[in-house]
Computed example of a mutant assay.
Amino acid sequence: MDRSTALDIEALKMTQEQYILAAQPNPLHQRGASVCGAQVYPAVGIYGWRKRCLYFFILLLLVTMIVNLALTIWILKVMNFTPDGMGNLRVTKEGVRLEGVSEFLLPLYVKEIESRRDSPLILQSDRNVTVNARNDQGQLTGQLTVGSEMVEAQCQRFEVRSTDGERVLFSADEEEISIGTEKLRVTGNEGVVFSHSVETSHVRAEPFQDLKLESPTRTLTLEAPRGVEVNAGVGDFTASCRKDLLLQSSEGEIFLDANTIRLGNIPLGSAVDPLEGAPAGTTYTKQTVYELCSCANGKLYLSPAEKGSTCQTTSNFCLWS
């Protein structure tokens, strides 16, 4: 191959390379150009609307961060966040402490609720306040409900103790109700109504007040294994009934101790004719002194008092009475 043929091939390659470079529309896609013998690469970056959008998003993010930080600081200030707690809530070594008025919208589970030493504990609700106690299985064992119309306690045994916690002042269960105070005072005008029997060692009225034991439709019975004592220190003792008044002592005696014992409305015995055994119809209009006689069945009647006993002559009362 001669020299002329080599020059033609070299010229053809240069022409082809120039055509390829001329055919490319964007000069940025070129790998590089030679200026004064040095290799020069085109500049790469973000220009135009892309650059403005990028700056806008950066500014928006910065504003969002500032607003978020300001709201966080405001919430911390309003809620009064401190290292010990939040607002009225303080976390101490003994537990959680609430100051002021607190409102709970959901159930509260605590082991113990205690107020400050110088202030009372108030539980308030628009409808009612209910305190429940449950066992390990979650079953309800006790309930105390304070409502607008009544206070209801549901438990196996209800007790009210003294301030020292040693004496039981009041207790109630399914079988009995026990009152352990030294004195039970009833101040109602109508007194106390018992449907069944009452067991007590002493019943008395207030000073300068009358004591009245009454059974309007049934029988009133006073029983004691070692005696019943009825004592009216200043006033009168009155026992009245519709039918029979029974004073009975199974082993001892009935003792009436008073300066004056009066038995009113005792019937007057009638005389018996010694021959016929019938009433003689004798009247004692001028008689002022009488003898108290007793029939075999225990009924009392009066007989005219004379030198001797006249109960036999007027015993006809025991026959028809």
Rank of each mutant, 00 (worst) to 15 (best):
T5C: 09
A6I: 01
A6R: 12
L7G: 10
I9G: 09
I9Y: 14
E10D: 15
M14Q: 10
Q16E: 00
E17D: 14
E17Y: 15
Q18F: 04
I20M: 05
P27I: 13
L28S: 07
R31E: 10
G32A: 15
S34G: 09
Q39F: 08
G48H: 14
W49Q: 02
R50F: 12
R50Y: 10
Y55D: 11
I58M: 08
L62T: 14
V67Y: 10
V78N: 07
F81Y: 10
T82I: 06
D84Y: 01
G85Y: 03
M86P: 06
G87H: 02
R90M: 01
V91L: 07
V91T: 11
K93G: 13
V96Y: 01
V101H: 14
S102C: 12
E103W: 14
L106S: 06
L108S: 03
V110K: 03
K111T: 11
E112K: 04
I113L: 10
I113C: 06
L121Y: 03
L123G: 13
Q124K: 03
T130A: 14
V131I: 15
A133F: 10
A133R: 05
R134H: 01
N135F: 00
D136K: 00
G138L: 02
T145K: 13
V151P: 10
E159S: 01
R167I: 07
L169C: 03
A172P: 05
D173E: 08
D173V: 01
D173P: 04
E175D: 07
S178W: 05
I179D: 08
G180C: 05
T181C: 07
K183C: 06
L184T: 09
V186Y: 10
V192I: 05
T200W: 15
T200R: 15
E206D: 14
P207E: 07
Q209K: 07
Q209C: 07
D210Q: 01
E214Y: 06
P216L: 01
L220G: 04
E229V: 15
V230T: 09
A232G: 14
G233K: 15
G233N: 06
G235P: 08
D236M: 14
D236T: 06
A239Y: 12
R242E: 09
S249V: 11
E251V: 10
G252E: 05
E253M: 02
L256I: 11
I261D: 11
R262E: 11
L263N: 04
S270Q: 11
A271I: 04
G277Q: 03
A280D: 11
A280N: 09
A280W: 03
G281K: 01
T282Y: 04
Y284V: 04
T288D: 08
E291G: 00
E291H: 00
E291M: 02
C293L: 00
L302W: 04
L302I: 06
P304H: 03
P304D: 05
P304I: 03
G308L: 02
G308A: 00
